Amino acid sequence: MTTDADILRIAAPAQAGVSGRPRRAGTRWRWRGVALGLVVPVVAAAGWELCVRAGLSDGRLVPPPSRIAETFWDLAATGELARHAAATVLRVAAGFGLGALAGTVMGALAGYSALTRALVDPTLQALRAIPSIAWVPLFILWLGIFEASKVALIAVGVFFPVYLGVMAAIASVDRKIVEVGRIFRLSGPAMVRRILLPAVLPAYVVSLRAGLGLGWMFVVAAEFMGAGEGLGYLLVDGQQLGKPAQIVAAIVAFAIIGKTTDWILVAATAPFLRWEDVVAQGETG
């Protein structure tokens, strides 16, 4: 009886090269990467704070970190920050779920079937070129000004990178590992589960991360559509009331929450990618 281990043992040279070396744990390198990633923003923030305190700038249009932190504290103390952040996260979560599901299905169909790709890909590529803001009046007309139109706009932003990633990954699966499956006479579902799915999973995770990033970008346009709460609302409110510290605080909140959700996505998918035999972080240094 053919087992997964038999298939992976034969397919491994075609898919992962001849290395076979065990990967390092990499814990030390991960923490080092986190520390290095904080260097630029911390140095930039400290430098701007010193410039304002030294009188080189009044910090009116670009407030110093101390003023931004004070604004954060005020928003958190009143509960506004949590309320607006929760509203934005829920919108992104709903839009990401819908967009990722639709992009996965359409990408899989277009990647697996040349006929489907010829029928739908030109239209989808044309729609992908439409700016996000151009969808706003149409979605308001179709779905109203409330949550449905906002979630739909975010889903559109998520859909295209996921669709492209899945379609390209399936279309570029190494022919040699497919031949391995045929040698073992795998059925169609077994071929998908044991050959195609592991082969496309790394590219699929990358496309999900790209879609999530665009989802956070599209939520700003979505919350410009008459939202009464959300981080995008804080941006508009800060602009209308002349509060640059509130605008920057909302931008920083977008960055922190967006990075956190990306980290959660990476951590959630990491167990499914442990089989990869790739260069471990720090091995090329």
Rank of each mutant, 00 (worst) to 15 (best):
G59E: 02
V236K: 12
R32P: 10
L208P: 03
G17V: 06
R185E: 15
A94F: 06
M191H: 06
L234Y: 05
A54L: 15
I251P: 06
M1G: 12
G242T: 09
E49T: 03
G211D: 04
D277A: 14
A126G: 14
A45R: 03
A168T: 13
D277P: 06
A280I: 04
L101M: 09
Q281Y: 13
D58I: 11
S149V: 04
R83A: 10
I130A: 02
W275Q: 04
G165N: 05
G157M: 06
R23H: 10
A280Q: 12
A82M: 05
G230T: 01
L265N: 01
L36W: 09
L273D: 05
L109N: 04
D237T: 07
R28C: 11
G242E: 07
A227T: 03
L36T: 14
L81V: 08
E179I: 05
V42K: 07
V206T: 13
L241R: 15
A255K: 01
Q246I: 05
G20I: 04
L8G: 08
D121W: 03
E276A: 12
V43H: 05
R185M: 14
F218S: 14
V173L: 05
R60T: 11
E80A: 15
L38H: 09
E276Y: 09
W135C: 07
K259T: 12
T27F: 11
A171P: 06
L201H: 06
V120F: 14
A14S: 14
R128D: 01
R30D: 13
T71D: 03
I7L: 03
V18L: 15
L109P: 00
I68V: 08
L273C: 02
G20W: 05
T284C: 13
G95K: 08
I145R: 14
M225E: 01
M225A: 08
I10E: 14
L127C: 08
G188C: 14
R32M: 14
W135R: 07
A210N: 13
G26V: 02
P161F: 04
T104P: 00
E70W: 13
C51R: 14
F96I: 02
V220M: 04
A85Q: 05
A77I: 11
A82N: 03
F160D: 00
D237V: 03
A169T: 11
G238W: 00
A5W: 10
V206M: 09
F218H: 13
V278I: 10
W263Q: 13
S187E: 06
L234D: 02
T104N: 02
A45G: 05
